[in-house]
Simulated scan of single mutants.
Amino acid sequence: MPIRIDHPVRPGLRMECADDGRLLLTQGGRPVLFARQRAAHRGVHYARTGRYVSPLAPPRAADDRALAALAPPGSEEWTERWAARWAAELRGAAEGPLHEGDWQLAPMLPGWFVEDHWKLLLPHDTDRGHLTWFGYDDPVEDARDLLPLRALSAPDAPRVKAYRRRFREGPLAPVLLWWISGLNVPVVLDGHDRLVAALAEGGRPHVLLLSRAVDAGYVAVCSERPLREYEERMAALEPGPLAPVRAGVASRRLADALTAIERATEITRAWPLAGGVAGWERAAAAHVPGWAPPRTP
């Protein structure tokens, strides 16, 4: 779902940056997440402050049932209805991430989530940690495909238990993610407890990803090659009983390529942090005392 925003210039939830890979996510002026990229861009060290609050109202069981009655859960229509709801709420969220420009809210592209990484999320979710981008010799548990903005609740927490019952009855509302390019992972904007509930029940959550949209010129340029290759394949098809099958394969390949281009994520905007490096260091010492991320390659 495309979202066009004309204001605000500085959103309530925003990333700020200083030199040498220093990042700070703030919400309503509150520090939420400190991060520092590794020198060779192999990963990022992070520290949560525990002060994040979802900008959305939690969906009720009646909401899940109402949307499931309108469209089959997990279907494209069901997903679009949730996307429309989240988009409307985000527009009015004073402490949300939307700022002027073009955005998109859509399911994650296939292949982003590595199945083996899901089992690492619950046992290795810590307020201070490291996310690897390319593996190398990093610990296996550092390979995670999303970052919660607050500590995940225990699987037997009362609210999670309620969501687990709802999950057994039918799909929960999607978990809302936000792509932050400086972290190279999406963060969880809303649905931390729904995420835990789905995983605790041995399932996988439905997710919607919020990101800045790439411009039309990028889409047009990047679409030229797959369109040309599709035309060449179709022109080379020889008549015969397998021709319709091969044409169908070529069409699906083209559709997947164009979808990936259209839903590519734009670089996340970051604002200069007041005080620069010294300001970041002071804030980190005050809000995550003792955290000293190594500047390793």
Rank of each mutant, 00 (worst) to 15 (best):
A94C: 03
G135D: 02
D20R: 05
S75A: 13
H117K: 03
G96H: 05
L25I: 11
A87K: 14
E76I: 08
A62Q: 10
A68R: 14
Y46L: 08
M108K: 11
P97Q: 07
E80W: 09
H124F: 12
D102T: 09
D137M: 08
L121M: 11
A40W: 00
A154C: 12
P139R: 12
D19E: 09
L147M: 00
E95T: 15
P155F: 07
P31Q: 09
D127I: 00
S153I: 04
A18W: 05
Y52R: 12
A84T: 10
L120K: 15
W112M: 06
R22E: 03
D116A: 11
G43Q: 01
L152Q: 04
W82F: 10
R85L: 09
P107S: 04
Y46W: 14
G92S: 12
R144D: 05
W103A: 02
L98V: 00
D116S: 15
A94F: 10
A94G: 04
R144T: 08
R81Y: 00
V114Y: 14
V32P: 04
S54P: 01
V114N: 08
S54I: 01
L131T: 03
Q37R: 12
V140N: 07
L121G: 07
V44P: 04
R81N: 02
A143Q: 03
A94D: 14
H130D: 13
P148D: 02
A93V: 01
P123M: 04
A93S: 03
A106M: 13
D116N: 06
G101W: 00
D156K: 07
R42M: 12
T132N: 09
L122H: 11
E95I: 02
P97D: 03
R38S: 01
C17L: 13
G29E: 09
H45D: 14
R36S: 02
R51E: 12
P55C: 08
F34D: 06
